[in-house]
Design a protein around this nucleic acid. Structure first.
Lengths: 207, 207
DNA sequence: TCCGAAAACTTATCGGCGTTACCCCTTGCG
DNA sequence: CGCAAGGGGTAACGCCGATAAGTTTTCGGA
């Protein structure tokens, strides 16, 4: 480009550009309604560099998306942890977890879609291994299992196998979150969250 | 191309090529693990025509995918109808519906992902309108609502609002179907289907 | 029988994309 | 002041979707 160049980073801070690329990609993903808008050239343009200057920091374009996914998982986990820590009552804590999960998906629908979209599939290439994906969501799942187990212990849940029922509960939350991210225009019932979460968590004395 | 050309279609049967394009795109989607492999050129090559020869039949590449989605919805609905018609007992019928739904998603994971992936989003362009998407899944949802209502009538379900609970049930099925399509390697519990469907359908006397 | 218009399809081309190979300029240490 | 190495740019390749402009085949009507 003939446009004025951005100031070059000093010697030891080359990795500063990496985070700039990452945030630029995240912003592009959030604003553009499609992950196809997160093009390598668009990211480079937004950062203010030439397209090939990305390669010293990311192996290829999918590596950028993978980094976005990793970062998004970290933030989601952080939010879930914060939501769980703010409440002591087991039942309220489980509700808070579900609410935080769905709020994240609703606030960043594109990110959520990509988090649970592909990338999982390139099983063989230099992509991401199943183990790594499992690790990313492991702590979030643990929060859910623990919270459900606490509900069982306090008599709020009739679950006989919290570890498995937590997966079922998460699948319900995921179905709702994903579908709301994809079709936010659909007239979702107002109480759809409770309709999904309460039965799956096997909560008793629903209110 | 210099390769021998396929025989040209006779005068009135130009639309025969349309279905060939459609099946080629579907096959590419099923075999290639990524909808990005369903490239306009790859479809044309598989059919045996030049890339621009697709345009008389489809407005653009997304129109092909949309046609694949439409066809897939039709087939899914057909299977659900057949599954429901094969059973009379309300509870068994609901189970058959859920099973057929999940089997379809497991048999054609790529198609399922695309069906409930994007395309929904291009709200404004010549893409697909929310109304049309809703219409595609309308009959399938009706089957589910009717089946759940029948379970309520026969005392098998404790649902108080089958129309809403059917949505919740579908969300759970979708979460499971989608996640299994994306991460088939995950060690899903053997009885995960029941763990999701039975509570959401509010079935009593579970077995 | 033949002819010309329309249908069916091709070739050529454009701009954008991911990716690679290679070049330049600055930085900061000795 | 010299000069390696890091930080980033330029040029180019092949593939993609899409358009424009031909080229071949078909077939009803004279």
């Amino acid at each position: 480009m003939t446009t004025p160049h951005r100031p070059r980073n000093p010697r030891g801070h080359g990795k500063r550009l990496r985070t700039e690329i990452l945030t630029a990609a995240t912003e592009l993903l959030d604003t553009g309604g499609d992950e196809r808008t997160v093009t390598l050239r668009a990211v480079a343009c937004r950062v203010g560099i030439a397209p090939p200057s990305i390669y010293p920091h990311f192996l290829d374009q999918s590596a950028i998306m993978l980094a976005v996914v990793r970062q998004s998982f970290a933030e989601l986990t952080h939010r879930l942890r914060a939501a769980a820590a703010a409440v002591v009552d087991p039942r309220q804590r489980l509700h808070a977890l579900c609410r935080a999960y769905l709020e994240y998906a609703q606030k960043y629908p594109q990110r959520y879609r990509v988090m649970f979209g592909d990338l999982w599939h390139p099983v063989v290439d230099g992509g991401v291994t199943p183990d790594e994906v499992t690790t990313m969501g492991a702590e979030a799942m643990r929060l859910l299992v623990d919270s459900l187990a606490a509900c069982v212990a306090s008599g709020h849940s009739a679950s006989r196998d919290p570890a498995v029922d937590a997966i079922a509960l998460w699948l319900g939350l995921h179905g709702l979150a994903h579908q709301r991210a994809v079709a936010s225009w659909y007239p979702w019932p107002a109480d759809i969250t409770q309709r999904v979460a309460i039965p799956l968590a096997r909560l008793v004395n629903a209110r």
